[in-house]
Write a protein that binds this DNA or RNA. Structure first.
Length: 427
DNA sequence: TCTGGGGTCCTAGGACCC
DNA sequence: TCTGGGGTCCTAGGACCC
């Protein structure tokens, strides 16, 4: 039989590990990285986990622990993490002709053809990433992606595995699946876990053995596929070419809630500018743009939520077209609400849908205007590439920028910003 | 009085992931 | 005081058509 093992290599506490790369003093102390706007914990060192800091826990919830135990807390530094991520994935790519970058800290690797050397190969991959990039990882191996994910989870959780868990052997896999909660399976979230419990399914082994039609009934085709994958049947292939994206979004919570149309339009103008840049970077144009803004759902204040979708005709990636569309949407949404003033809007965003390749977009009758927007946008990109993000912006973004998110505890952009390069002195 | 059936397309919303 | 951002996929149900 043809055995085609899949490995998932996943960085340990990735964001925290990135922070530690450039500050060895952080190595053995509790460290937490916060989400945008310094909202909640999204990466925790083993020491921070041991202190009970939960994934997604709001920063103000564990403030007491921070003080008492000297937890080092960082705002997220995505330029740093993105750069380190590229180094990790290009190192991993050397180890197999077929791999898929699944997320900022995970890569699937096809290990077909390595036969008895498979485990040595996986160990070598881990050691190389640690040596050449400095990031610790764990590897999970299984006959399907879902099994590789499960194996990776076990490798992380149980030090007995020494960082590599291999579930290709059916006996070993069965042993582990009987002892693992069904909620740990990739694709089984809170709702599905609850519905599975209702029909008496609590362990991964029970999920694997559940009849396919029942799986479909409790969940959808997605759950049915998961069950097959747990049986070792590959349903989800490794995708080595990046599929074309279908939508994209730029959304942010404001550092200071927005109480005037002007504040709101400045934020949306900034988001639309960023969204247009993203589109151009991907060579895409958008057919629909949705503008939304809403109040803080957590603080018990008077709630309001506004969302407006506009068609872009012709589909566009021009900064000017997008900014114009969102400014208009904001204005209409604002005045369309009879009590429009009086709300404090926390979050605003721009969502682009029905993306198509630039060259496939239909031409417009007013080709001249289209061309002008294109040239100006390209010029803005060139200036901003050379002189830094936000070197030139549209006037509609304003100068006060009260909407900007908080990031009070961000580490330097060690690898992507000249002024932040670490200096090493040798005597 | 009697009032079809079946197909496609689109959208909103749910669930999940990292 | 204080709770992220950016994606994917699936389904149900309405609109519309013949």
């Amino acid at each position: 039989m043809d055995i085609r093992p899949i490995a998932l290599i996943d960085c340990n506490n990735f964001y925290v590990s990135c922070e530690r790369l450039f500050d060895p003093r952080l190595r053995s102390i509790p460290v937490v990285v916060l989400s945008n706007n310094d909202g909640c914990a999204i990466s925790r060192s083993a020491e921070a986990k041991a202190l009970g800091v939960k994934m997604g826990e709001p920063a103000h919830h564990f403030r007491d622990k921070t003080k008492a135990h000297g937890i080092r807390v960082f705002s997220s530094n995505y330029s740093l993490y993105g750069d380190i991520s590229r180094r990790v994935s290009s190192t991993i790519a050397e180890f197999s002709p077929l791999s898929e970058i699944y997320s900022i800290d995970e890569t699937f690797v096809d290990l077909s053809g390595f036969g008895g050397r498979m485990l040595d190969h996986a160990a070598e991959m881990r050691a190389t990433v640690l040596r050449s990039v400095g990031i610790p990882t764990c590897v999970g191996i299984g006959p399907s992606k879902t099994m590789a994910k499960l194996a990776n989870h076990l490798a992380k959780q149980n030090p007995m595995f020494g960082g590599i868990c291999d579930l290709m052997d059916a006996t070993m896999a069965d042993y582990c699946m009987r002892r693992t909660d069904v909620s740990e399976v990739w694709g089984v979230g809170r709702q599905t876990t609850a519905r599975l419990r209702d029909v008496g399914i609590a362990t991964v082994a029970q999920l694997r053995d559940m009849p396919l039609p029942l799986a479909r009934n409790v969940g959808t085709v997605v759950l049915e596929r998961i069950v097959s994958e747990l049986r070792g049947v590959r349903c989800i292939d490794i995708q080595d070419v990046e599929p074309r994206r279908k939508g994209m979004a730029v959304t942010r919570s404001a550092g200071t809630p927005m109480t005037s149309l002007d504040d709101l339009q400045q934020a949306l103008s900034s988001h639309a500018t960023r969204a247009a840049q993203k589109l151009r970077n991907h060579g895409l144009v958008a057919s629909h743009v949705t503008t939304f803004f809403h109040t803080n759902p957590h603080n018990g204040s008077r709630q309001n939520s506004v969302s407006r979708t506009a068609r872009l005709s012709p589909p566009s990636n021009s900064t000017f077209a997008l900014v114009q569309a969102v400014l208009r949407a904001a204005e209409r949404g604002w005045s369309g609400d009879p009590s429009g003033n009086g709300f404090a809007y926390l979050k605003a965003g721009v969502v682009l849908d029905d993306l198509i390749p630039e060259e496939a977009a239909p031409a417009d009758l007013f080709a001249f205007e289209q061309d002008t927007g294109k040239k100006l946008s390209a010029a803005m990109d060139a200036v901003n590439d050379r002189f830094g993000k936000k070197a030139v912006v549209l006037g509609s973004e304003g100068f006060m920028r009260s909407f900007e998110t908080r990031a009070d505890m961000r580490s330097p952009r060690y690898t992507t910003r000249m002024a932040d390069l670490p200096v090493v002195s040798a005597r």
